[in-house]
Amino acid sequence: MSQPDLLSRFPRVRLIAGPTPIQRLDRLEQLLGDRRAGVSIWAKRDDFMELGGGGNKLRKLEFLVGQAKSEGCDTVIAIGGVQSNFARLAAAACAKTGLACELVLAQMVPRDSSIYQGNGNVLLDRLFGARVHILAKGEDASKFATDRASEITAAGRKAFMATLGGSTPTGCLGYVDCAFEIALQSAELGLDFDQIIIPNGSGGMHAGLAAGMVVAGKDPSRIRAYTVLSAENASLLATVDKTNVVLALLSKSERVGPKDLEISGTQLGDGYGAPTPDMVEAVAIVGRSEGLLLDPVYGGKAFAGLLSDIQNGTISPGTNVLFVMTGGSPGLYAYADALNSN
């Protein structure tokens, strides 16, 4: 069975037109000059998708919406933070596929300004037709969503619960597929990427990519992630568990351990969604050199880690690096105060 055929038995609704492009960041390399230590920097443009403003969560939603439809659900309830990219794209995916959407948004970040609570992703959530429930601080999002699902059931409908980040084993399949996609594109380019750089939030993207690497016979430790949600060790253990569950879902006997995955906690700062000076600088340098947008919660911190680890030698001089641009640019508008202050 070929690698893509492994996924054919899972229900799927296509939300992405085709492989997202890989491009070299030439202008950034020029701007960095000797500071890049001969490292070649490429970007996998998972921000470059047509639906809902684009972003990596669409890969997960192809399988999650497929699962929801296969189970006869007419409503998706998605859980996230106030500025959740997953919630925004769940709303867009539901609009595209004719499902009702309800978003349960928890106060995961200590930012209570009106621009944070009502702009960026929240604005788009409503434009895509979702019913938005913004919870008070301390309110239990999982309980609220479960109670809401019961109400929907009582009304004669059926709800599908999409948990934080869509990082269920089924959702992770979207990044197993991405790992296969990167392998094909690498062959076409005649280029093997020594490092693949990503953010790690709820861990589903990392787990899917790692599982895909294992299936493809490649070393999953070439994926270097920067945690943006949990402490380094907690993120590592959770991602190892998710990766092994995905491998089991694919009926594969291989398993990974903590030594097989690379996760750095250097960019977490004060926690999830908390701006850091290095993030602000990374967002600015990519914008000014390439005209590309990194989000402030995920990609901005991961790219800051990439730049730091090139300069300190953690990423070896002369290597080929692929940075996965996960999208999330609407979140920039919710962080205008932090970005304008620099």
Rank of each mutant, 00 (worst) to 15 (best):
L247W: 05
L250E: 04
S2F: 01
G171I: 08
I152G: 06
W42Q: 08
A106H: 12
H206V: 02
G203W: 08
Q83E: 02
A154S: 09
G273F: 04
F63G: 10
V109Q: 07
K60V: 05
A90I: 02
D270G: 14
G81P: 08
L292G: 01
N121L: 03
S186Q: 14
R148P: 00
A141T: 08
P317W: 04
L31S: 15
Y116K: 01
A211V: 07
L135Q: 03
R148D: 02
R255T: 15
G204N: 07
D5Q: 15
P258I: 01
N200R: 04
G204C: 09
A100I: 00
R255L: 11
I285N: 01
D260I: 12
F144E: 06
C94A: 15
C178P: 00
G80Q: 11
R255A: 12
D270L: 13
G265M: 07
A149V: 01
F63N: 11
R14Q: 14
A248K: 15
R36V: 08
S341P: 00
I263C: 10
L89Y: 06
A334Q: 02
P277D: 14
V176L: 06
Y175L: 11
Q23I: 14
D270A: 15
A183E: 11
L15R: 09
T276P: 13
A37S: 09
I285R: 05
N121V: 01
K137Q: 13
R45D: 05
G257V: 12
D241V: 07
L322D: 08
L25C: 04
G138L: 06
K137A: 13
T314Q: 13
A145H: 12
N200Q: 11
N312K: 15
Y175G: 03
L307M: 15
G318K: 10
E71L: 14
S230C: 04
A87Q: 03
G156F: 05
P277W: 12
K137V: 11
A100G: 03
T163C: 02
I77L: 12
S186R: 01
V82T: 14
T326I: 01
I79P: 00
P275C: 10
P110Y: 13
L123R: 09
T227R: 05
Q117N: 13
F144T: 13
Q67V: 00
G331A: 12
M1K: 12
Q267N: 03
P4W: 09
N342E: 12
I285E: 02
L307C: 11
Q30G: 10
L339V: 10
A238N: 11
A248P: 05
R222V: 03
R288D: 15
N56E: 04
L51D: 01
V256P: 06
L247Q: 02
P199N: 14
A17T: 15
P317N: 06
M213T: 00
D309L: 01
I77F: 00
L103N: 08
Q117T: 14
V104Y: 05
V13M: 04
R35E: 14
M49S: 00
K259L: 04
F63V: 11
L294D: 04
A238V: 00
L189V: 03
K259V: 08
Y226A: 08
Q107M: 09
D47P: 06
A183W: 00
E50Q: 14
S84Y: 08
E29L: 03
Y272E: 07
Q311Y: 00
E281H: 15
